[in-house]
Design a protein around this nucleic acid. Sequence first.
DNA 1: AACGGCATCTTTTTT
DNA 2: AGATGCCGTT
Length: 682
Amino acid sequence: MEKIFEKLNESQSQAVKQSEGPVLILAGAGSGKTTTIVSRLAYLVEVLGIPASNTLTLTFTNKAAKEMRERALDMIKDISYPPLLCTFHKFGLLFLKFNIHLLNRQNNFVVIDTDDKKRIIKKINSEIPTPLIASEISRYKNSLLTPDDAYKQAELFNYQQIAKVYEEYEAYLRENNLVDFDDLIALTYKLLDENPKLAETTSQKYQYIMIDEYQDTNELQLKLLQKLCTSHNNLCVVGDDDQSIYGWRGAHIRNIIEFDQDFKGTSTFKLENNYRSKEPILKVANALIEHNRSRLGKKLIATRGAGEDVSIINSHDENEESRKIAQKIKKLLDSGVRANDIAILYRVNVLSRSIEEGLNRTGIAYKLVGGLRFYDRAEIKDLISYIRIITNFHDDFSFKRVVNKPKRGLGKASIEKIELAAHASSSSIYEYIKKTSLADLETLVRKKNASTLKTFIKDIEKVSKVATESTYNFIDVLEETFHLKNIYAGMQDEAERILNMDEFYGLFRDFVKKSPESGLDEFLNELTLQSEQDQVEGESIYMMSIHASKGLEFEHIFIIGLEEGFLPLIGDGSDLEEERRLGYVSFTRAKETLTLSHAGSRFYKGRRSDLQKSRFFNEAGLCEGSLKVEKNTAFKKGDLVRHKIFGTGRVTGISKSGREFKLNINFAGTKRDILASFVERL
DNA sequence: AACGGCATCTTTTTT
DNA sequence: AGATGCCGTT
C-alpha cells in the first residue's frame, strides 16, 4: 500500500484514492499520467481488493496499452485474472467475438483495414471520389446513421449517391462477414443499446473503468462509455484538453471539457507538476496555450528548475534553415549528446525533405518516424492477401491482388473475364474456377492461362490444408509454393522488400509460438488492429510530424516551419485553437532545450512562396527582443502597459525574477505580478 | 500484358 | 516538385 504512494505527489495520490464515481484527471504534459493510471489500477486491486478482471482500462494505441500493462502487472501480485487493458478497438473486437451472434452474425468475422474499405467502395462507385465516400461512411457510422437515415438526410444528389454506396457497402460487409474499424465500436454500442440486459451484465463485469487520452474520444465512444456505466458510474478519465490534436479525425474536445456535465458528481484533479521540461520551455508553452479560449485552464509548473532559454533560428529560406539546424545538431553531438536524444518536429511531413538534405550533407544519421507504415508496404500487403485468400477462398479482392504475383501471365483482361463469369453464376472467382471444367475455362481465356488458374487454386487449397493442420509449417509452405520473394525480383529495392518480408515471416512465427492453437483468421485480426511497432533503438536522431511525437519526449527538440500557413497551418477546415495545441504539444516534448525555426520562404507545391513568421512566436512571449533583459529595463514605474488577458494597467513596481524582470502592475485596482515579456508598453 | 505518358493532388493518422 | 493513378499504346 505504502509502496503505491511512494512515488506519487499530492494531487496524483488524491486522484488515485478517488476510486468511486466519475473522476476527471487533467494531466498536463509530462505530469506523470501513466504512473497515475497504473497506480490507480494497483490501488483498486491491491488495496481495495477489487478483482483485477473486474476492471477495464482503455487506450488509443497498442503501444500505450502495452506500456501500461507491463507496468500494471509489475504492481499487481496475483495476475491469474489479469485486468483487461487494451485499445478501444481491441475491446470492441473481444466484445463482438462473444456477442455478435445477437445481430445474427457469425463470430469468425474478419476486420478490414482502411485500404480494403476503399477497395470495396471503389468497386461499388465510379464517379464520387473514394476518400470522400470512405470518410462519409465513417461519419455516418460514428453518428449511428443507417444507410436509410443517411439517404433521408441527404440534401444534395451527391450525398444521396453516397448513401446508396453506403448501403451497398454494408451489404457487402455482411455478405462476406467483414467488419470495419468503425464497426468495432459502433456494433458494440448497438449491441449494448439494443440489449439492456447485456448492457447491465457487461457493466457489472467492469466495475471500474479507466480511459486514457480522453480528449481523443469521439461522440460514439462517449455513448459507449455511458452504456458501460449502466450499473455504476465508476468511470475515471485521464486526458489533457490542451493536447487534443485529433479534431480533424472526429475527436470531440467537448467530451473532456464537459465531462462533469455528462457524468454528474465528478471529482476533478489537476496534475500540473511537470517532471519533464526545464522552466524556460514551460514558460513559453504556457504562454502559448493561454491564448486558447475553449480550455479548462491549467498551468504547467516546472519542477526541473532553470535551463537554457528557448532559441530561435531565423533563416532566409529552407536551405539556410537546414544548414543552420544541421550545424547546431552537429555541435550537440560533438559535445557528447546522444543522437537518440534529439528530435526534429514539423507540422507537415513534406517539410522533412529539405532538412534531410542538410543532415545528409553534414553526415548526421536520422530516422524518419511515420512515413509509410510497415503494414502499408506493398510487399506486406501482398503477403497478407495471400493469407486472406487462404483463410477465405471467397475473398475476391485478395484473389485479384495476388493472382499475378509473382507474374504468371494472368493480366487484367483474363481476370476480368473470369470475374464477370463468376458474377453471372453468383459465385466467387475462386469458386467459379474450381467448379468450371478446364475445357470451359479455355473458352474464356487462353489455354495456358486456364491451366495456370487451375494450378493456382490447387496450390491455395494445398497451403490452406497445411494451415489447418499445422500453423507452424504454414509460412514456409506458403513461401515454397508461391515463391513470394520473387515478386520483386530485379527491382532496385528488392533487398529491402525481402528484408521486410522476412520480418513479417518472423512476426508470424512469433504469433504461432505465442498462441499455437490460434488459426490464421486470428492472426489476421491481430494484424489489422496493430500499428507499427516501435522502431528499434539506434544511434540516430529522429524526425517526425508533431502528431507522431505526442506522448514522446526528447532532451533536445527542434521545431521547423514556424510560419503562418505551416504552423499554424491555415486552410480548409483548419482550427486555430487546434493548431495552437499542436504548438503546445510540440514545445512540451522538450526536456532540456527547445529550438524554434522559421524561414522567410519555402519551395512548396512546385513553387516558391514567401512566408510570414508564425504568430505563435508573439503569443508564446517570444517577440523580438523579449528574451533580452536590456529591453525590459525600459519599463519604469508609471508606464502604461497592456496584457493579453488583463488588459491595460500601470506599472507600480519592478523586481528581478531569474533572468527576467517582473513588473507589479495595477490593472483597474487589482495589482498583479507579471513577467515583463508578457506585456507591451503603450 | 506491360509499359509509358498524362492528369491530378498535395495536413495531420490510429485502429 | 513528386508521387500516384488512369488510360491508351505497343
